[in-house]
Design a protein around this nucleic acid. Structure first.
Length: 216
DNA sequence: CGGCTGATTGCCT
DNA sequence: GGCAATCAGCCGA
């Protein structure tokens, strides 16, 4: 397994068991690998994350303590927390902090590097297959559903793994998207200037590259 | 271009 | 029963 057999080497569990803000920042630029070695393999580069600080964060599902839905956030780091948003979209998080302390990082946007046709087929529509903008779109393109809730990324048999980043990206910090609670906290981390970032960061200077006619 | 709304289901009070 | 870490489409300016 260690040599060439396993296509990805996840960071060790203690890398995830750090303060949530640090993990959220450091996950930008990492790869997410789904179904490696199969005909539906996809590799995408994470370009935007948000930190959810557990019981200290009114916007976190863990704010009021463990519930059937949020209990995985209280467990050991390096597991996946997937919830259903607005009745239709799956959203994927990576659990942080030591066992017993809640925290998670929402994966908000990614740039597809391998498996573009698989992603395009899942999305069905004509939307750009290379850009997974928004947590719901990201999960749909990668084929992540609530069936993946709670899986341990450290286990070799898991269908989802992380790969290291090839370089340290420039990071923009902004407010989280779509919240009613604690909407002013600066807990969103995005690859500065990356076109897949789901929303421009306030104060960054809107790059307004939203609607181009066609490819360059 | 910016703001608003409908869709749709599980979860929490 | 009401709300929610969303998204795409529609409307008006």
């Amino acid at each position: 397994m260690r040599r060439g057999d396993s296509p990805v080497a996840d960071p060790p569990r203690e890398w995830f068991a750090r303060p949530t803000e640090e993990v959220a920042r450091d996950l930008v630029g990492c790869a997410i690998v789904v179904d490696a070695g199969t005909d539906t393999a996809v590799v995408a580069r994470i370009v935007e994350t948000e930190a959810y600080l557990g019981t200290a964060d009114p916007a976190s599902h863990a704010f009021r303590g463990p519930t059937p839905r949020s209990r995985v956030m209280f467990g050991p780091a390096g597991h996946l927390y997937v919830y259903l948003s607005y009745g239709m979209h799956s959203c994927a998080n990576i659990v942080t902090e030591v066992d017993g302390v809640a925290g998670a990082v929402l994966l908000r946007a990614a740039s597809v590097e391998e498996g573009g046709p698989v992603v395009a087929a899942r999305r069905g529509g004509p939307s750009s297959p290379a850009l997974l903008r928004g947590p719901g779109n990201l999960c749909r393109g990668l084929g992540i559903t609530r069936a993946d809730d709670g899986i341990d990324l450290m286990l070799p048999e898991s269908r989802i793994h992380l790969g290291p980043r090839t370089r340290t990206p420039p990071i923009a910090i902004g407010t989280r998207v779509g919240l009613r609670q604690a909407a002013d906290r600066l807990l969103r981390f995005s690859w500065l200037g990356d076109p897949a970032v789901s929303r421009p960061v306030p104060g960054e200077g809107a790059q307004s590259a939203g609607k181009r006619k066609g490819p360059d």
